[in-house]
């Protein structure tokens, strides 16, 4: 049960997990705060002088929100106009953060210096890996979508009334599987990259990682779904189940604190997932054999072997299946 051991390693062993989690949580908090600021000011303008809006504290009064859309359309336009920039910034920050998280996982150190070294070294390759994975899995997703659309068109006139439901569930399940395959592929590409030190190049690293995730389809997906569900559960708990509402200032503070607690825990799980992927992949990689030092050639002879590189490569090669 190598995958279970890897999950345990990821969650409970090694140093620096809290640093990574705090950086992820903190970056998310700051980014959201930055882009929420104009929205926050707008809410004060809209609602501070409107006693009718108190209904919103109880979760009612959705019609009042609708009114703001009619009477203050510029507010909502302004509130959402910045979202694409937030997404872009989040992607950039996220790549840097993940580069550091995976780098820490590979090196085993827990310090800020190790994290930063990983970020600097791996951010650009991670970007390339992201693009490659997006290309592949978007194509797969479109292909699967086209198949389902054709199937729907072909059977909708003849299928029994329960049929569309079955097709819907199959489609939804397939979409989730494709998204998860993308996550697996990207995550293990990143793990492989930091473990091999980039010695094999981005493209080869990507292709071998994809192959790896299919060869070990079940454990890889078990790992990823475990972390997906744990994160989803943490967020559902903190956002809904444990939420204290907003009826009083005390309840609002408790709700806000629980919310951030949920995000921090989800960040910790993300770090744990990265470390689990590195741990799992490490178990199936072995160091490449070191090349023999060449015999010095005579004056009149061509060297028979290329000179050995000055230092051993950190490359690792996957252990084939028995």
């Amino acid at each position: 049960m190598e995958w279970a051991r890897a999950v345990g390693n990821g969650l409970f062993r090694g140093k620096g997990k809290l640093l990574g989690a705090l950086l992820i949580w903190g970056s998310g908090f700051l980014l959201a705060t930055l882009f929420l600021n104009p929205v926050r000011s707008g809410f004060h303008t809209l609602f501070d002088g409107a006693p009718a809006s108190r209904a919103l504290l109880q979760g009612s009064g959705i019609d009042l929100l609708f009114e703001t859309g009619l009477h203050q359309p510029a507010f909502w336009s302004a509130a959402t106009a910045e979202l694409p920039y937030m997404v872009l910034l989040a992607v950039a920050v996220g790549l840097v953060l993940m580069a550091g998280v995976y780098g820490q996982a590979a090196e085993g150190g827990g310090s800020w210096r190790v994290f930063w070294r990983g970020s600097v070294a791996n951010a650009l390759p991670f970007t390339a890996l992201l693009l490659l994975n997006l290309l592949l899995w978007t194509a797969v997703g479109l292909g699967v979508g086209a198949i389902f659309a054709a199937a729907w068109h072909g059977v909708r006139d003849t299928m029994d009334p329960a049929g569309p439901w079955h097709l819907f569930w199959i489609t939804l399940g397939s979409a989730l599987i494709v998204v998860n395959l993308f996550r697996n592929s990207l995550g293990f590409s990143q793990a492989r990259w930091v473990l091999t030190g980039g010695g094999e190049g981005v493209a080869r690293c990507f292709m071998r990682s994809v192959a790896f995730t299919f060869r070990r389809f079940v454990p890889v997906n078990l790992m990823t779904w475990l972390f997906n569900l744990a994160r989803a559960g943490a967020m559902l708990l903190s956002v809904f189940t444990l939420s204290q509402g907003y009826a009083t200032t005390g309840r609002w503070l408790a709700t806000a604190a629980l919310l951030q607690g949920g995000f921090l825990f989800a960040a910790y799980l993300r770090v744990g997932e990265a470390r689990a992927q590195v741990s799992y992949m490490r178990a199936f990689l072995e160091p490449l054999p070191v090349a023999a030092a060449p015999v010095p050639a005579g004056k009149d002879e061509e060297p028979s072997v290329a000179a050995a590189p000055a230092s051993e490569p950190r490359g690792m090669e996957e252990i084939p299946d028995a």
């Binding site: 992820i24 908090f29 980014l31 705060t33 937030m86 997404v87 967020m235 995000f263």
Partner: peptide
């Protein structure tokens, strides 16, 4: 709204 914004960022971090 923070739930929405921060969840979106967190989701992106999870994917990356």
């Amino acid at each position: 709204f923070r739930v929405l914004y921060q969840s979106l960022v967190a989701m992106l971090f999870n994917i990356l």
